[in-house]
Design a protein around this nucleic acid. Structure first.
Ligand SMILES: Nc1nc2c(ncn2[C@H]2C[C@H](O)[C@@H](COP(=O)(O)OP(=O)(O)OP(=O)(O)O)O2)c(=O)[nH]1
Ligand SMILES: [Mg+2]
Ligand SMILES: [Mg+2]
Ligand SMILES: [Zn+2]
Length: 573
DNA sequence: GCCGTTTTCGGCCCGACTGTTTTCAGTCG
Protein backbone atom coordinates (compact mmCIF):
# COMPACT_ATOMS: atom_id res chain seq x y z
CA UNK A 1 0.00 0.00 0.00
CA UNK A 2 1.49 3.36 -0.99
CA UNK A 3 1.16 6.58 0.96
CA UNK A 4 -1.67 7.91 -1.19
CA UNK A 5 -3.69 4.79 -0.54
CA UNK A 6 -2.90 5.03 3.16
CA UNK A 7 -3.97 8.67 3.20
CA UNK A 8 -7.22 7.63 1.53
CA UNK A 9 -7.96 5.06 4.23
CA UNK A 10 -7.28 7.65 6.94
CA UNK A 11 -9.73 10.00 5.20
CA UNK A 12 -12.25 7.20 5.16
CA UNK A 13 -11.58 6.57 8.83
CA UNK A 14 -12.34 10.24 9.52
CA UNK A 15 -15.67 9.89 7.69
CA UNK A 16 -16.52 6.72 9.60
CA UNK A 17 -15.71 8.37 12.91
CA UNK A 18 -17.79 11.40 12.02
CA UNK A 19 -20.81 9.28 11.10
CA UNK A 20 -20.42 7.30 14.28
CA UNK A 21 -20.64 10.60 16.18
CA UNK A 22 -17.08 10.80 17.47
CA UNK A 23 -15.44 13.92 18.86
CA UNK A 24 -15.06 16.33 15.90
CA UNK A 25 -11.46 17.03 16.87
CA UNK A 26 -10.62 13.38 16.64
CA UNK A 27 -12.17 13.38 13.18
CA UNK A 28 -9.99 16.32 12.28
CA UNK A 29 -6.93 14.60 13.66
CA UNK A 30 -7.45 11.83 11.10
CA UNK A 31 -8.01 14.35 8.33
CA UNK A 32 -4.83 16.19 9.27
CA UNK A 33 -2.89 12.95 9.42
CA UNK A 34 -4.17 11.98 5.98
CA UNK A 35 -3.02 15.30 4.58
CA UNK A 36 0.40 14.90 6.21
CA UNK A 37 0.90 11.40 4.83
CA UNK A 38 -0.27 12.41 1.37
CA UNK A 39 2.15 15.31 1.11
CA UNK A 40 5.07 13.57 2.80
CA UNK A 41 8.28 14.31 0.96
CA UNK A 42 10.17 11.38 2.36
CA UNK A 43 9.94 7.64 1.91
CA UNK A 44 7.25 6.30 4.22
CA UNK A 45 8.82 2.89 4.81
CA UNK A 46 12.11 4.50 5.68
CA UNK A 47 10.41 6.80 8.19
CA UNK A 48 8.79 3.83 9.87
CA UNK A 49 12.01 1.83 9.96
CA UNK A 50 13.79 4.71 11.66
CA UNK A 51 10.90 5.27 14.07
CA UNK A 52 10.50 8.80 12.73
CA UNK A 53 6.86 8.67 11.73
CA UNK A 54 5.66 10.26 14.98
CA UNK A 55 7.93 13.22 14.25
CA UNK A 56 5.68 14.08 11.32
CA UNK A 57 3.30 16.92 12.22
CA UNK A 58 -0.20 15.59 12.89
CA UNK A 59 0.90 12.01 13.45
CA UNK A 60 1.06 10.73 17.00
CA UNK A 61 1.44 7.38 18.65
CA UNK A 62 -1.95 5.99 17.66
CA UNK A 63 -2.11 7.00 14.03
CA UNK A 64 1.54 6.07 13.53
CA UNK A 65 0.66 2.54 14.62
CA UNK A 66 -2.30 2.51 12.25
CA UNK A 67 -0.09 3.64 9.38
CA UNK A 68 2.39 0.90 10.10
CA UNK A 69 -0.46 -1.63 10.18
CA UNK A 70 -1.75 -0.26 6.88
CA UNK A 71 1.65 -0.59 5.27
CA UNK A 72 2.04 -4.17 6.43
CA UNK A 73 -1.51 -5.55 6.35
CA UNK A 74 -3.52 -3.04 4.25
CA UNK A 75 -5.85 -2.34 7.18
CA UNK A 76 -6.00 -1.74 10.94
CA UNK A 77 -8.29 -3.10 13.66
CA UNK A 78 -10.24 0.07 14.55
CA UNK A 79 -10.95 0.68 10.88
CA UNK A 80 -12.21 -2.87 10.32
CA UNK A 81 -14.40 -2.61 13.38
CA UNK A 82 -16.05 0.63 12.29
CA UNK A 83 -16.49 -0.58 8.73
CA UNK A 84 -18.57 -3.47 10.04
CA UNK A 85 -21.05 -1.08 11.66
CA UNK A 86 -21.45 1.44 8.82
CA UNK A 87 -22.45 0.53 5.26
CA UNK A 88 -19.81 1.31 2.64
CA UNK A 89 -22.31 3.08 0.38
CA UNK A 90 -22.99 5.66 3.06
CA UNK A 91 -19.49 7.06 2.63
CA UNK A 92 -20.30 7.72 -1.03
CA UNK A 93 -23.29 9.76 0.08
CA UNK A 94 -20.97 12.24 1.81
CA UNK A 95 -19.77 13.26 -1.65
CA UNK A 96 -23.16 14.81 -2.38
CA UNK A 97 -22.67 18.56 -1.87
CA UNK A 98 -24.65 19.66 1.18
CA UNK A 99 -24.79 16.14 2.61
CA UNK A 100 -22.63 15.72 5.67
CA UNK A 101 -22.23 13.03 8.27
CA UNK A 102 -25.24 14.03 10.36
CA UNK A 103 -27.73 14.07 7.51
CA UNK A 104 -26.36 10.89 5.95
CA UNK A 105 -26.62 9.08 9.25
CA UNK A 106 -30.19 10.24 9.76
CA UNK A 107 -31.27 9.08 6.30
CA UNK A 108 -29.61 5.74 6.93
CA UNK A 109 -31.08 5.24 10.40
CA UNK A 110 -34.59 6.44 9.58
CA UNK A 111 -35.00 5.33 5.98
CA UNK A 112 -32.41 2.60 5.66
CA UNK A 113 -30.75 4.21 2.62
CA UNK A 114 -27.16 3.14 2.02
CA UNK A 115 -26.24 4.56 -1.39
CA UNK A 116 -26.59 7.67 -3.52
CA UNK A 117 -29.18 5.93 -5.69
CA UNK A 118 -31.26 5.10 -2.62
CA UNK A 119 -31.06 8.69 -1.37
CA UNK A 120 -32.21 9.83 -4.77
CA UNK A 121 -35.15 7.42 -4.75
CA UNK A 122 -36.12 8.43 -1.21
CA UNK A 123 -36.26 12.06 -2.36
CA UNK A 124 -38.37 11.16 -5.40
CA UNK A 125 -40.75 9.17 -3.25
CA UNK A 126 -41.08 12.11 -0.85
CA UNK A 127 -39.83 10.15 2.13
CA UNK A 128 -37.20 12.67 3.15
CA UNK A 129 -39.30 15.77 3.78
CA UNK A 130 -41.15 14.31 6.73
CA UNK A 131 -37.97 13.58 8.69
CA UNK A 132 -37.09 15.73 11.69
CA UNK A 133 -34.87 18.57 10.50
CA UNK A 134 -35.74 18.12 6.83
CA UNK A 135 -38.48 19.68 4.74
CA UNK A 136 -39.77 20.00 1.20
CA UNK A 137 -37.01 22.41 0.26
CA UNK A 138 -34.13 20.39 1.61
CA UNK A 139 -35.49 17.23 -0.01
CA UNK A 140 -35.60 18.97 -3.37
CA UNK A 141 -32.16 20.44 -2.74
CA UNK A 142 -30.61 17.04 -2.06
CA UNK A 143 -32.19 15.67 -5.23
CA UNK A 144 -30.88 18.59 -7.33
CA UNK A 145 -27.48 18.25 -5.72
CA UNK A 146 -27.23 14.60 -6.75
CA UNK A 147 -28.18 15.41 -10.34
CA UNK A 148 -25.73 18.30 -10.45
CA UNK A 149 -22.84 16.45 -8.93
CA UNK A 150 -23.25 13.67 -11.52
CA UNK A 151 -22.85 16.28 -14.22
CA UNK A 152 -20.28 18.66 -12.79
CA UNK A 153 -18.35 16.83 -10.12
CA UNK A 154 -14.61 16.55 -10.21
CA UNK A 155 -11.41 18.44 -10.81
CA UNK A 156 -10.04 20.07 -13.96
CA UNK A 157 -6.67 20.64 -15.55
CA UNK A 158 -5.18 23.98 -14.57
CA UNK A 159 -4.94 25.67 -18.00
CA UNK A 160 -8.52 24.83 -18.99
CA UNK A 161 -9.89 26.55 -15.93
CA UNK A 162 -7.35 29.35 -15.97
CA UNK A 163 -8.39 30.41 -19.47
CA UNK A 164 -12.06 30.49 -18.47
CA UNK A 165 -11.20 32.32 -15.24
CA UNK A 166 -9.24 35.04 -17.02
CA UNK A 167 -12.22 35.85 -19.23
CA UNK A 168 -14.62 35.83 -16.31
CA UNK A 169 -12.28 38.12 -14.39
CA UNK A 170 -12.12 40.65 -17.20
CA UNK A 171 -15.92 40.60 -17.50
CA UNK A 172 -16.17 41.18 -13.76
CA UNK A 173 -13.76 44.09 -13.90
CA UNK A 174 -15.96 45.78 -16.46
CA UNK A 175 -18.98 45.80 -14.18
CA UNK A 176 -19.58 49.31 -12.94
CA UNK A 177 -18.83 49.60 -9.25
CA UNK A 178 -16.14 46.89 -9.22
CA UNK A 179 -12.91 48.25 -7.76
CA UNK A 180 -10.69 45.15 -7.71
CA UNK A 181 -11.23 41.59 -8.87
CA UNK A 182 -8.56 38.91 -8.46
CA UNK A 183 -8.18 35.15 -8.74
CA UNK A 184 -7.83 33.30 -5.46
CA UNK A 185 -7.96 29.67 -4.30
CA UNK A 186 -6.05 26.91 -6.04
CA UNK A 187 -5.75 28.93 -9.25
CA UNK A 188 -3.72 31.57 -7.46
CA UNK A 189 -1.68 28.88 -5.72
CA UNK A 190 -1.08 27.11 -9.04
CA UNK A 191 -2.04 23.60 -8.01
CA UNK A 192 -1.77 21.03 -10.79
CA UNK A 193 -5.52 20.48 -10.91
CA UNK A 194 -8.33 22.71 -9.65
CA UNK A 195 -11.86 22.09 -8.42
CA UNK A 196 -13.35 25.50 -9.07
CA UNK A 197 -12.68 29.16 -9.82
CA UNK A 198 -12.40 31.35 -6.71
CA UNK A 199 -12.57 35.11 -7.17
CA UNK A 200 -12.52 38.04 -4.75
CA UNK A 201 -14.16 41.32 -5.71
CA UNK A 202 -14.13 44.64 -3.90
CA UNK A 203 -16.83 47.23 -4.36
CA UNK A 204 -18.69 50.00 -2.57
CA UNK A 205 -21.96 48.87 -4.16
CA UNK A 206 -22.00 45.13 -3.61
CA UNK A 207 -25.72 44.35 -4.06
CA UNK A 208 -25.73 46.00 -7.46
CA UNK A 209 -22.50 44.33 -8.57
CA UNK A 210 -23.91 40.93 -7.57
CA UNK A 211 -27.06 41.61 -9.55
CA UNK A 212 -25.11 42.47 -12.69
CA UNK A 213 -22.67 39.61 -12.22
CA UNK A 214 -25.48 37.05 -12.06
CA UNK A 215 -26.66 38.22 -15.47
CA UNK A 216 -23.38 37.32 -17.22
CA UNK A 217 -24.17 35.08 -20.20
CA UNK A 218 -21.63 32.38 -19.32
CA UNK A 219 -23.52 31.51 -16.13
CA UNK A 220 -25.70 28.42 -16.36
CA UNK A 221 -27.11 28.14 -12.84
CA UNK A 222 -26.83 29.85 -9.48
CA UNK A 223 -26.26 27.39 -6.65
CA UNK A 224 -25.79 29.81 -3.72
CA UNK A 225 -26.52 33.46 -3.27
CA UNK A 226 -25.95 35.53 -0.17
CA UNK A 227 -25.05 39.12 0.52
CA UNK A 228 -21.28 38.60 0.44
CA UNK A 229 -20.78 35.55 -1.70
CA UNK A 230 -22.34 33.69 -4.59
CA UNK A 231 -21.67 30.33 -6.22
CA UNK A 232 -22.55 29.61 -9.82
CA UNK A 233 -21.95 26.97 -12.47
CA UNK A 234 -20.81 28.09 -15.91
CA UNK A 235 -22.06 26.56 -19.15
CA UNK A 236 -18.56 25.10 -19.46
CA UNK A 237 -19.39 22.96 -16.42
CA UNK A 238 -17.01 24.80 -14.10
CA UNK A 239 -18.05 25.93 -10.61
CA UNK A 240 -17.27 29.47 -9.52
CA UNK A 241 -17.23 31.01 -6.02
CA UNK A 242 -17.13 34.79 -5.83
CA UNK A 243 -16.65 36.69 -2.60
CA UNK A 244 -17.58 40.37 -2.43
CA UNK A 245 -15.97 42.71 0.11
CA UNK A 246 -15.26 46.39 0.71
CA UNK A 247 -12.03 47.88 -0.61
CA UNK A 248 -10.62 48.09 2.90
CA UNK A 249 -11.23 44.38 3.47
CA UNK A 250 -9.80 43.32 0.15
CA UNK A 251 -6.27 42.31 1.25
CA UNK A 252 -7.42 40.05 4.07
CA UNK A 253 -10.29 38.63 2.03
CA UNK A 254 -7.93 37.89 -0.85
CA UNK A 255 -5.56 36.24 1.55
CA UNK A 256 -8.33 34.20 3.15
CA UNK A 257 -9.74 33.04 -0.14
CA UNK A 258 -6.31 32.15 -1.52
CA UNK A 259 -5.76 29.52 1.14
CA UNK A 260 -4.84 26.85 1.30
CA UNK A 261 -7.22 25.85 4.05
CA UNK A 262 -4.37 24.23 5.98
CA UNK A 263 -2.23 27.35 5.56
CA UNK A 264 -5.10 29.52 6.82
CA UNK A 265 -5.70 27.32 9.83
CA UNK A 266 -2.02 27.31 10.76
CA UNK A 267 -1.73 31.06 10.36
CA UNK A 268 -4.88 31.73 12.36
CA UNK A 269 -3.71 29.59 15.21
CA UNK A 270 -0.38 31.43 15.12
CA UNK A 271 -2.27 34.71 15.38
CA UNK A 272 -4.21 33.33 18.31
CA UNK A 273 -1.01 32.46 20.15
CA UNK A 274 -0.16 36.15 19.87
CA UNK A 275 -3.51 37.40 21.15
CA UNK A 276 -4.58 38.25 17.64
CA UNK A 277 -7.27 37.01 15.32
CA UNK A 278 -7.38 36.56 11.54
CA UNK A 279 -10.57 36.37 9.56
CA UNK A 280 -11.45 37.36 6.01
CA UNK A 281 -12.30 40.76 7.46
CA UNK A 282 -8.85 41.52 8.71
CA UNK A 283 -6.24 41.10 11.39
CA UNK A 284 -7.33 42.03 14.91
CA UNK A 285 -5.70 42.50 18.25
CA UNK A 286 -7.78 40.82 20.96
CA UNK A 287 -8.32 43.07 23.97
CA UNK A 288 -10.35 40.73 26.11
CA UNK A 289 -13.43 40.11 24.02
CA UNK A 290 -12.90 43.19 21.93
CA UNK A 291 -11.29 42.85 18.52
CA UNK A 292 -9.25 45.92 17.65
CA UNK A 293 -8.42 46.10 13.93
CA UNK A 294 -4.75 46.04 12.93
CA UNK A 295 -4.71 47.73 9.52
CA UNK A 296 -2.94 45.74 6.76
CA UNK A 297 -2.67 47.47 3.44
CA UNK A 298 -1.56 44.27 1.72
CA UNK A 299 -0.61 40.65 2.37
CA UNK A 300 3.01 41.55 3.01
CA UNK A 301 2.00 43.65 6.02
CA UNK A 302 -0.32 40.89 7.24
CA UNK A 303 2.55 38.40 7.30
CA UNK A 304 4.88 40.95 8.82
CA UNK A 305 2.53 41.60 11.75
CA UNK A 306 2.70 37.87 12.43
CA UNK A 307 6.49 37.93 12.42
CA UNK A 308 6.77 36.34 8.99
CA UNK A 309 8.30 37.16 5.64
CA UNK A 310 5.86 37.39 2.74
CA UNK A 311 4.89 33.90 1.61
CA UNK A 312 4.25 33.61 -2.14
CA UNK A 313 0.83 32.08 -2.88
CA UNK A 314 2.34 28.99 -4.53
CA UNK A 315 3.98 28.00 -1.24
CA UNK A 316 0.86 28.35 0.93
CA UNK A 317 0.25 24.66 1.47
CA UNK A 318 1.27 24.30 5.13
CA UNK A 319 4.30 22.30 4.05
CA UNK A 320 6.99 24.12 6.00
CA UNK A 321 6.55 27.58 4.47
CA UNK A 322 5.48 29.24 7.74
CA UNK A 323 8.50 27.90 9.62
CA UNK A 324 10.77 29.03 6.77
CA UNK A 325 9.15 32.48 6.70
CA UNK A 326 9.75 32.85 10.42
CA UNK A 327 13.45 32.06 9.99
CA UNK A 328 13.74 34.26 6.89
CA UNK A 329 14.63 31.15 4.92
CA UNK A 330 12.07 31.25 2.15
CA UNK A 331 13.50 30.59 -1.29
CA UNK A 332 13.68 33.26 -3.98
CA UNK A 333 11.41 31.44 -6.39
CA UNK A 334 12.12 31.02 -10.07
CA UNK A 335 10.35 33.39 -12.47
CA UNK A 336 9.48 33.08 -16.13
CA UNK A 337 12.11 35.66 -17.06
CA UNK A 338 14.82 33.40 -15.61
CA UNK A 339 14.32 30.78 -18.34
CA UNK A 340 16.94 31.10 -21.04
CA UNK A 341 16.00 28.12 -23.16
CA UNK A 342 14.08 24.88 -23.17
CA UNK A 343 14.73 21.19 -23.70
CA UNK A 344 12.42 18.28 -24.57
CA UNK A 345 10.73 19.28 -27.82
CA UNK A 346 9.32 16.94 -30.48
CA UNK A 347 9.18 17.56 -34.23
CA UNK A 348 7.88 15.90 -37.36
CA UNK A 349 10.86 13.54 -37.06
CA UNK A 350 8.72 11.65 -34.53
CA UNK A 351 5.27 12.50 -33.17
CA UNK A 352 5.48 16.32 -33.21
CA UNK A 353 3.34 18.47 -35.48
CA UNK A 354 5.92 21.20 -36.04
CA UNK A 355 9.01 21.09 -38.24
CA UNK A 356 12.41 21.77 -36.72
CA UNK A 357 12.32 25.31 -38.02
CA UNK A 358 8.78 25.99 -36.80
CA UNK A 359 9.62 24.77 -33.33
CA UNK A 360 12.82 26.82 -33.22
CA UNK A 361 11.00 29.97 -34.28
CA UNK A 362 8.27 29.33 -31.73
CA UNK A 363 10.88 29.10 -28.98
CA UNK A 364 12.47 32.31 -30.17
CA UNK A 365 9.08 34.00 -30.15
CA UNK A 366 8.74 32.92 -26.49
CA UNK A 367 11.92 34.82 -25.72
CA UNK A 368 14.13 31.74 -25.42
CA UNK A 369 17.64 31.63 -26.82
CA UNK A 370 18.02 27.89 -27.26
CA UNK A 371 15.79 24.92 -27.92
CA UNK A 372 16.76 21.32 -27.28
CA UNK A 373 15.14 18.91 -29.75
CA UNK A 374 14.42 15.46 -28.40
CA UNK A 375 12.37 13.21 -30.65
CA UNK A 376 11.49 9.66 -29.69
CA UNK A 377 13.84 6.74 -30.18
CA UNK A 378 13.26 3.70 -32.36
CA UNK A 379 11.42 1.51 -29.83
CA UNK A 380 8.68 4.12 -29.69
CA UNK A 381 6.68 2.78 -32.64
CA UNK A 382 3.56 4.41 -31.23
CA UNK A 383 5.22 7.80 -31.69
CA UNK A 384 7.11 7.29 -34.93
CA UNK A 385 10.44 6.85 -33.17
CA UNK A 386 13.58 7.68 -35.17
CA UNK A 387 15.69 5.06 -36.90
CA UNK A 388 19.45 5.71 -36.97
CA UNK A 389 19.16 7.16 -40.47
CA UNK A 390 16.58 9.66 -39.22
CA UNK A 391 18.94 10.75 -36.49
CA UNK A 392 21.63 11.48 -39.10
CA UNK A 393 19.20 13.40 -41.31
CA UNK A 394 17.94 15.43 -38.37
CA UNK A 395 21.46 16.25 -37.27
CA UNK A 396 22.31 17.58 -40.71
CA UNK A 397 19.15 19.65 -40.86
CA UNK A 398 19.87 21.14 -37.45
CA UNK A 399 23.35 22.15 -38.66
CA UNK A 400 21.78 23.93 -41.62
CA UNK A 401 19.19 25.69 -39.48
CA UNK A 402 21.76 26.79 -36.92
CA UNK A 403 23.74 28.37 -39.76
CA UNK A 404 20.64 30.09 -41.06
CA UNK A 405 18.63 31.16 -37.99
CA UNK A 406 19.58 34.13 -35.84
CA UNK A 407 18.79 34.50 -32.14
CA UNK A 408 18.00 30.87 -31.47
CA UNK A 409 20.35 27.91 -31.09
CA UNK A 410 19.05 24.42 -31.76
CA UNK A 411 20.55 21.67 -29.62
CA UNK A 412 20.66 18.06 -30.78
CA UNK A 413 19.07 15.76 -28.27
CA UNK A 414 16.99 12.64 -27.95
CA UNK A 415 14.24 11.27 -25.73
CA UNK A 416 15.47 7.71 -25.57
CA UNK A 417 13.22 4.95 -24.29
CA UNK A 418 14.29 3.13 -21.17
CA UNK A 419 13.72 -0.52 -22.05
CA UNK A 420 12.27 -3.00 -19.57
CA UNK A 421 15.70 -4.02 -18.25
CA UNK A 422 16.89 -0.45 -17.78
CA UNK A 423 19.03 -0.42 -20.91
CA UNK A 424 18.60 2.32 -23.50
CA UNK A 425 17.08 2.13 -26.96
CA UNK A 426 20.26 3.18 -28.89
CA UNK A 427 23.85 2.02 -28.75
CA UNK A 428 26.34 4.26 -26.99
CA UNK A 429 27.93 5.48 -30.21
CA UNK A 430 24.55 6.83 -31.34
CA UNK A 431 23.83 8.35 -27.92
CA UNK A 432 27.25 10.00 -27.90
CA UNK A 433 26.34 11.89 -31.07
CA UNK A 434 23.77 14.00 -29.20
CA UNK A 435 24.40 17.16 -27.19
CA UNK A 436 22.03 15.92 -24.48
CA UNK A 437 20.13 12.73 -23.72
CA UNK A 438 16.73 12.52 -22.04
CA UNK A 439 15.72 9.06 -20.83
CA UNK A 440 12.15 8.10 -20.10
CA UNK A 441 9.67 5.26 -19.89
CA UNK A 442 6.90 4.76 -22.44
CA UNK A 443 6.24 1.04 -22.17
CA UNK A 444 5.93 -1.80 -19.67
CA UNK A 445 4.32 0.37 -17.00
CA UNK A 446 3.20 -2.47 -14.77
CA UNK A 447 6.47 -3.62 -13.21
CA UNK A 448 6.63 -3.87 -9.43
CA UNK A 449 7.85 -0.82 -7.53
CA UNK A 450 11.28 -2.30 -6.90
CA UNK A 451 11.70 -3.48 -10.48
CA UNK A 452 10.64 -0.11 -11.85
CA UNK A 453 12.94 1.74 -9.47
CA UNK A 454 15.85 -0.49 -10.45
CA UNK A 455 15.02 -0.02 -14.14
CA UNK A 456 15.12 3.77 -13.81
CA UNK A 457 18.22 3.81 -11.64
CA UNK A 458 20.03 1.60 -14.16
CA UNK A 459 19.24 4.15 -16.85
CA UNK A 460 20.35 7.02 -14.62
CA UNK A 461 23.65 5.29 -14.03
CA UNK A 462 24.33 5.30 -17.78
CA UNK A 463 27.06 7.92 -18.29
CA UNK A 464 25.48 9.39 -21.42
CA UNK A 465 22.10 10.09 -19.83
CA UNK A 466 21.57 13.67 -18.64
CA UNK A 467 17.89 13.95 -17.78
CA UNK A 468 15.13 11.69 -16.49
CA UNK A 469 11.81 12.79 -17.99
CA UNK A 470 8.31 12.45 -16.50
CA UNK A 471 9.45 10.03 -13.78
CA UNK A 472 6.08 8.42 -12.94
CA UNK A 473 4.24 8.55 -16.27
CA UNK A 474 1.13 9.93 -14.62
CA UNK A 475 -1.52 11.67 -16.69
CA UNK A 476 -3.51 13.95 -14.41
CA UNK A 477 -7.17 12.95 -14.06
CA UNK A 478 -6.71 9.98 -16.38
CA UNK A 479 -3.75 7.70 -15.73
CA UNK A 480 -2.28 6.74 -12.38
CA UNK A 481 1.48 6.97 -11.95
CA UNK A 482 3.35 3.72 -12.30
CA UNK A 483 4.79 2.31 -9.09
CA UNK A 484 8.24 3.72 -8.40
CA UNK A 485 10.17 4.74 -5.32
CA UNK A 486 10.81 8.43 -5.98
CA UNK A 487 13.11 9.07 -2.98
CA UNK A 488 15.36 6.29 -4.29
CA UNK A 489 15.29 7.75 -7.78
CA UNK A 490 16.19 11.16 -6.34
CA UNK A 491 19.05 9.63 -4.34
CA UNK A 492 20.23 7.92 -7.49
CA UNK A 493 20.04 11.13 -9.53
CA UNK A 494 22.06 12.81 -6.79
CA UNK A 495 24.71 10.10 -6.89
CA UNK A 496 25.17 10.34 -10.67
CA UNK A 497 24.58 14.09 -10.97
CA UNK A 498 21.54 13.70 -13.19
CA UNK A 499 18.67 16.11 -13.76
CA UNK A 500 15.03 15.20 -13.08
CA UNK A 501 12.58 16.93 -15.36
CA UNK A 502 9.58 18.96 -14.36
CA UNK A 503 7.50 18.19 -17.43
CA UNK A 504 5.29 21.22 -18.11
CA UNK A 505 2.72 19.46 -20.24
CA UNK A 506 -0.40 20.34 -18.21
CA UNK A 507 -1.50 16.71 -18.15
CA UNK A 508 1.82 15.66 -16.61
CA UNK A 509 3.27 18.47 -14.47
CA UNK A 510 5.81 16.10 -12.97
CA UNK A 511 8.10 15.33 -11.16
CA UNK A 512 5.40 16.16 -8.64
CA UNK A 513 6.11 19.53 -6.98
CA UNK A 514 5.88 17.93 -3.55
CA UNK A 515 9.30 16.33 -4.12
CA UNK A 516 10.97 19.68 -4.83
CA UNK A 517 12.33 20.27 -1.31
CA UNK A 518 13.81 16.75 -1.17
CA UNK A 519 15.49 17.29 -4.55
CA UNK A 520 16.98 20.54 -3.32
CA UNK A 521 18.18 18.90 -0.12
CA UNK A 522 19.92 16.19 -2.16
CA UNK A 523 21.30 18.69 -4.66
CA UNK A 524 19.36 17.32 -7.63
CA UNK A 525 18.62 19.87 -10.34
CA UNK A 526 15.55 20.08 -12.52
CA UNK A 527 14.66 21.31 -15.99
CA UNK A 528 11.35 22.96 -16.86
CA UNK A 529 10.46 21.24 -20.13
CA UNK A 530 7.61 22.02 -22.51
CA UNK A 531 7.50 18.46 -23.92
CA UNK A 532 6.06 20.30 -26.93
CA UNK A 533 4.40 18.36 -29.73
CA UNK A 534 3.48 21.51 -31.66
CA UNK A 535 4.75 25.11 -31.86
CA UNK A 536 2.09 26.51 -29.54
CA UNK A 537 3.14 24.09 -26.79
CA UNK A 538 6.49 25.75 -26.17
CA UNK A 539 4.36 28.02 -24.00
CA UNK A 540 3.71 25.05 -21.68
CA UNK A 541 6.64 26.37 -19.68
CA UNK A 542 4.57 29.45 -18.79
CA UNK A 543 2.21 27.25 -16.78
CA UNK A 544 5.07 25.07 -15.59
CA UNK A 545 6.66 28.04 -13.85
CA UNK A 546 3.81 28.07 -11.32
CA UNK A 547 4.38 24.39 -10.57
CA UNK A 548 8.14 24.95 -10.38
CA UNK A 549 7.53 27.68 -7.83
CA UNK A 550 5.30 25.33 -5.82
CA UNK A 551 8.26 22.96 -5.76
CA UNK A 552 10.31 25.70 -4.03
CA UNK A 553 12.65 25.79 -7.05
CA UNK A 554 14.97 28.74 -7.43
CA UNK A 555 16.82 29.91 -10.52
CA UNK A 556 19.89 27.98 -9.46
CA UNK A 557 17.95 24.69 -9.26
CA UNK A 558 16.78 24.82 -12.86
CA UNK A 559 19.25 24.00 -15.62
CA UNK A 560 17.40 25.80 -18.39
CA UNK A 561 18.12 29.02 -16.53
CA UNK A 562 21.72 28.45 -17.64
CA UNK A 563 23.08 29.92 -20.84
CA UNK A 564 23.64 27.43 -23.63
CA UNK A 565 27.38 27.36 -22.93
CA UNK A 566 26.85 26.78 -19.20
CA UNK A 567 24.27 24.10 -19.96
CA UNK A 568 26.53 22.13 -22.30
CA UNK A 569 29.28 22.40 -19.75
CA UNK A 570 26.89 21.09 -17.10
CA UNK A 571 26.24 18.10 -19.33
CA UNK A 572 30.02 17.78 -19.89
CA UNK A 573 29.66 18.07 -23.65
C1' DG B 1 -6.26 11.98 18.26
C1' DC B 2 -2.59 15.58 18.44
C1' DC B 3 0.08 19.01 20.68
C1' DG B 4 3.20 21.94 23.96
C1' DT B 5 9.83 26.99 26.50
C1' DT B 6 3.77 30.08 29.06
C1' DT B 7 0.88 24.17 29.25
C1' DT B 8 1.22 16.80 29.71
C1' DC B 9 -4.57 19.09 30.28
C1' DG B 10 -7.45 21.50 27.71
C1' DG B 11 -7.36 23.54 23.95
C1' DC B 12 -8.04 22.51 18.59
C1' DC B 13 -9.67 28.84 12.69
C1' DC B 14 -13.41 31.54 11.73
C1' DG B 15 -17.39 33.03 9.27
C1' DA B 16 -21.31 32.64 5.34
C1' DC B 17 -25.36 30.44 3.80
C1' DT B 18 -29.46 27.44 4.05
C1' DG B 19 -33.43 25.59 5.99
C1' DT B 20 -35.34 24.60 9.84
C1' DT B 21 -36.06 26.21 14.04
C1' DT B 22 -38.18 29.76 17.25
C1' DT B 23 -32.73 30.67 18.45
C1' DC B 24 -29.68 27.28 15.71
C1' DA B 25 -27.53 23.05 13.54
C1' DG B 26 -25.38 21.43 9.60
C1' DT B 27 -22.42 22.14 5.90
C1' DC B 28 -19.13 24.42 3.43
C1' DG B 29 -15.28 27.62 1.93
N1 LIG C 1 -10.00 29.69 7.16
C1 LIG C 1 -10.52 28.78 6.32
N2 LIG C 1 -10.43 29.00 5.00
C2 LIG C 1 -10.94 28.08 4.17
C3 LIG C 1 -11.53 26.88 4.63
N3 LIG C 1 -11.94 26.17 3.56
C4 LIG C 1 -11.59 26.88 2.48
N4 LIG C 1 -10.98 28.05 2.83
C5 LIG C 1 -10.44 29.09 1.95
C6 LIG C 1 -9.05 28.67 1.51
C7 LIG C 1 -9.29 28.05 0.16
O1 LIG C 1 -8.16 28.09 -0.67
C8 LIG C 1 -10.39 28.94 -0.35
C9 LIG C 1 -11.17 28.34 -1.50
O2 LIG C 1 -11.68 27.09 -1.11
P1 LIG C 1 -11.79 25.88 -2.13
O3 LIG C 1 -12.65 24.85 -1.53
O4 LIG C 1 -12.22 26.38 -3.46
O5 LIG C 1 -10.34 25.24 -2.18
P2 LIG C 1 -9.08 25.57 -3.09
O6 LIG C 1 -9.40 26.62 -4.10
O7 LIG C 1 -7.94 25.83 -2.20
O8 LIG C 1 -8.80 24.17 -3.84
P3 LIG C 1 -9.72 23.49 -4.95
O9 LIG C 1 -10.87 24.40 -5.19
O10 LIG C 1 -10.09 22.18 -4.36
O11 LIG C 1 -8.89 23.33 -6.17
O12 LIG C 1 -11.22 29.17 0.76
C10 LIG C 1 -11.60 26.66 6.04
O13 LIG C 1 -12.09 25.63 6.53
N5 LIG C 1 -11.08 27.65 6.84
MG1 LIG D 1 -11.13 26.44 -5.26
MG1 LIG E 1 -14.23 27.36 -3.92
ZN1 LIG F 1 7.95 11.33 -23.21
Amino acid sequence: MNKHQIAHILEEMADLLEISGENPFKVRAYQNAARSIDSLSEDLEELIQNNQLIEVKGIGKNIAAHVQDLLETDTFPEYEKLKKTIPAGLLECLKIPGMGAKKAKLLWKKLGVTSIEEVERACQEGKVESLQGFGKKSQEKIFQSIERSRKYEGRHLFPTVHEVAKHLLSDLRQISGVLRAELAGSLRRHTETVKDIDIVVSSASIPNVIKVFLQLPQIDQVTNKGTTKVSVILHRGINVDVRFVSEKEFPSAWHHFTGSKAHNVALRSRAKDRDMKISEYGLFHMKGKRAVPVPCKDEEVLYKKLGLDFIPPELREEMGEIEAAEKHELPVLIERADLKGCLHVHTTYSDGRGTLEEMALAAKACGLSYIGISDHSKAAHYAGGMQIADVRRQSAEIDELNAKLKGIRILKGIEVDILADGSLDYDDDVLASFEFVIASIHSRFSLSESEMTKRICTALAHPLVNILAHPTGRLLLSREPYQVNIPEVIACAAEYGKVIELNCNPRRFEIDWRWGPLMKEKGVKTVLSPDAHGPEQIANVDYGIGIGRKAWFEKKDVVNCLTVAQLLKHFSR
